[in-house]
């Protein structure tokens, strides 16, 4: 497949309570093998998916948040977080996992994958995407 499309995975739901976040991450990981232009968006309660310090011990569910840190190794390094969603939940960038990637064109320098953007900018990214998955 030579055609490259812009894929956007929109994550809108809390990490636990429903399975959407976990199964969305499974799609992202499989999709990474297809060499498409991939971006992730986190908004609404979806911002909780990438918060630090998740502890699921008492839930009896697997804490899958460490997997997000592997996204950089899959060349998934455009991660957009909506500012308004963070604000509404009293969160800041410091509350999020430090998601990074290594830029092979810049002597493997470690760079931040997360970009906090406004809802207006998020709308533009959605508009510019070819395939939008909403989870």
């Amino acid at each position: 497949m030579s055609e490259t499309k812009k894929f956007l995975y929109v994550n809108r739901k809390a990490p636990y309570g429903t399975i959407y976040a976990l199964e969305a991450l499974e799609v992202v990981l499989i999709g990474a093998a297809f060499e498409q232009d991939v971006s992730l968006a986190f908004l609404d309660d979806g911002v909780y998916q990438i918060t630090k310090g998740q502890d699921t011990k008492d839930l009896g569910m697997k804490n899958f948040s460490p997997t997000y840190k592997a996204l950089g190794d899959y060349d998934v390094n455009k991660i957009y977080v909506e500012q308004e969603s963070l604000d509404a939940r009293g969160l800041t960038l410091d509350d999020l996992l430090p998601l990074t990637w290594e830029d092979e064109d810049d002597d493997w320098a470690e760079k931040d994958s997360i970009k906090v953007i406004s809802a207006t900018e998020m709308a533009k990214i959605m508009e510019q995407s070819d395939v939008v998955f909403s989870f």
């Binding site: 497949m1 055609e3 499309k5 894929f7 499974e26 799609v27 499989i30 999709g31 093998a33 297809f34 498409q36 070819d130 395939v131 998955f133």
Partner: peptide, 10 residues
Amino acid sequence: GLGQLIEAGI
């Protein structure tokens, strides 16, 4: 597999 979903998108 999920690859079928990605392929559908492509």
